Each structure stands twice: as C-alpha cells, then as structure tokens.
Amino acid sequence: MATDPKKYSLNHTMLRVKDPQRSSKASPVSPPPLLMSDTLPVKYYELLGMKQINKIENPDAKFDLYFLAYDTLKSLSSGQHWTARQGVLELTHNYGTEKDDNFKIANGNSEPGKGFGHICISVDAIQAACQRIEDAGYKFQKKLTDGRMRHIAFALDPDGYWVEIIAFNPVDKTEDVKETDPGTYKFNHSMIRVKDHEKSLNFYQDIMGMSLVRTSENASNGFNLYFLAYPGDEALSKESANGVNPTAEREGLLELTWNYGTEKDADFKYHNGNDEPQGFGHICIAVDDLDGACKRFEDKGVNWKKKLTDGRMKNIAFVLDPDGYWIEVIQNEKMKRTSNW
C-alpha cells in the first residue's frame, strides 16, 4: 500500500446547485443557441467552455452529480478519465430543491455561510471573454472596470457563486482583441478562507502533500493569498516579468485566503459549506493508491469526516482540514483500476 503524494492531484471542486435546468439558462437573456448544446445540463459552464465529462445518478439517495471540465484538444487533460484530471467541477443537485421557493444556495461570501470564496478560470483575452459572458445575459459581482484591480473580474453563475476571471496572456496586449477561444480556457483554482494560515499551510503541505507555488501579500488591505498545487514547482513562486500571474496557465490549484487577525479570535470560525446554509461541498484529491493514502493520513493523525470503511461507499473517504472543510479522497483510476465510476 505504498503511496507517493507527488502523484496526487487536486481533481475537483464540488458546488451544490438548486436547479440544474435553471443553472442552464441565463437571465434575462439566453445565450446564443450556437454556443449551447441542449444535451448538457449546466449551460452556464458550457458557455465558459466546459463540457460534461461524466454524470452519476443516485435516484435512491435522491441526488445527481454532474462533472464538467475543459476537454478540447487544447486542454491540459483532454480525453482523460475524470479521476485522472485536474480542474474538474462537480455540480451536485439534490432532488426537490428546484421546487422549494425558500431554498437558496449559500455562495460563501456573505453571512451566514462565509468561508468558500470562488472558483477561477483563466482565459486568453480577458476583455473579450468578459464581454462574451455579459452579452449572454449573465451578471457580474465585479467587472473589469470596477475598482482599482483592472486585471480581474468576478462573474456570477445562476446560483450566485463567484467565478473569478483572470488572464494567462498579458492584458495590455489583448485590449483590442475582440475574439476569445473558450477551448483554451483553464479551471485555474478554487479559493477558501482560512482562520490560521500557519496551521492551514502546514496541513496542506505536510499532510496533504501539496507545495506552495505562489504567495501574494497584501499588507495594506490586511490579507494574504497562498496558492498550492500538485506537483509543486517552486520556480512559479515569483511574479512573472510580463505582469501575468505566473500560475495562470495551470489547473488544479488551491488558493487559501488569510485575513489578518482571525487566528487571534478564539470564537472566529468559517463556514464549511455543508452545515446550513449549504453551498460549497468539498475539494477532492485523486491519489495513486487509495488504501495507502488513507493509511498515510491515518498515521499523520488527520480528523476524518468519513473513513473508507464507513458507510456503504467504500471507494471514497473524507478528511477534515483545520477549518472543517471537507476533502474528498478518491482513487486515480488511470493509476490503479478500482471502481466502475
């Protein structure tokens, strides 16, 4: 049961959606028909260039899982089994929520329920990409022209989740570019807020085996950002000379946001997304040997939400991070065939 953390990957991020059909429509203007396929359940993310690569139906438990990723010839993991990828988005629909007028997803950015922040995609031409989203009728939390930071935007999906838009090409070289190619986009990272950066960095590096690839300190605004990934590349810790985020062309990164002083407040706590009100569910790592990885985690004294031996599903486990966020652990089926997902 040998396991090597260098072979792990940040496979997916799970978000609950109220209604997969509503999540497939923009309001008030529908996206142009040529951009959409009626066969895919979540057309908003298809507009962002993603494709459905798997669907797992669980009628007995009354929920369905939709897995979306970038899957063109220009994508980083085109054609791979969904467990062998980075940059996968899992959307969970619990039957009946679409009929409940009082049900509302917690997007993680307001109380109650503050914790998870956003997912992020990187694009070729950010002005053209944002214009394409706006032309399709979707709203923004922050447009490129809002505030001082003119190199990032935050679009809103139909459930109110924030989707950060960043560029992997120099922004000033694409200002006059009118076309954008969603086939080149990447699911760059997912952001969660952490109470104590030292505890969280130690957990994700020592226990989960990730490497810190970039740090962004914002002392004037009282927060720092830490980007971790599998496998680590310490050369990416420095800012790019051309002004582009040096990790923007990657997938499968985790961003930890630490607001100064939260670690000193004994009563301070972030919401894990799984208590009420619900929204974000978990991040997921795919490992080379599921039994070996779980044995390694057990030896390091992790807190478990679910061990492999718990419940009926013996092919997944859930570890709790220092803030109580859930981390699903699954087998990379390309490395070792264990499940008929």
Score class of each variant (00 low, 15 high):
Arg16Gly: 05
Met50Cys: 04
Lys295Asn: 14
Lys74Met: 09
Lys199Met: 07
Phe140Ser: 08
Lys186Asp: 03
Asp38Arg: 12
Lys306Glu: 02
Asp71Asn: 12
Ala125Tyr: 13
Asn340Cys: 09
Asp159Tyr: 00
Thr39Ala: 14
Ile121Val: 15
Leu228Val: 03
Val213Thr: 05
Phe103Tyr: 14
Thr257Cys: 13
Ile133Gln: 04
Met208Ile: 15
Leu10Gln: 00
Asp38Pro: 08
Gly87Cys: 02
Phe318Thr: 01
Ala317Met: 10
Gly324Trp: 06
His118Thr: 07
Thr97Trp: 04
His118Trp: 04
Lys104Trp: 08
Gly108Phe: 01
Asn315Lys: 11
Asp291Met: 10
Asp206Gln: 15
Asp71Ala: 01
Tyr66His: 07
Val171Lys: 06
Met210His: 01
Arg22Glu: 12
Ser77Pro: 00
Gln205Asp: 07
Gly292Val: 06
Ala293Thr: 15
Val123Cys: 08
Ser216Gln: 15
Asp157Leu: 02
Asp176Gly: 10
Pro277Cys: 07
Lys25His: 13
Gln205Asn: 13
Arg312Thr: 13
Asp310Ile: 06
Lys336Gln: 14
Leu34Cys: 11
Met1Lys: 13
Asp265Cys: 06
Phe67Trp: 00
Pro246Gly: 04
Lys195Ile: 07
Ala266Thr: 15
Tyr325Trp: 04
Leu320Ile: 04
Ser339Arg: 10
Pro182Asn: 05
Lys7Met: 14
Ile53Glu: 04
Ser27Ala: 11
Gly292Ser: 09
Gly273Ala: 08
Ile126His: 04
Gly137Cys: 08
Lys186Leu: 09
Ser122His: 03
Phe67Ile: 00
Trp326Asp: 02
Pro32Trp: 10
Asn340Asp: 13
Lys178Gln: 13
Pro28Met: 08
Asn303Val: 14
Ile330Arg: 01
Lys6His: 10
Glu179His: 12
Val17Cys: 12
Ile283Phe: 08
Thr83Trp: 02
Gln331His: 08
Trp304Asp: 04
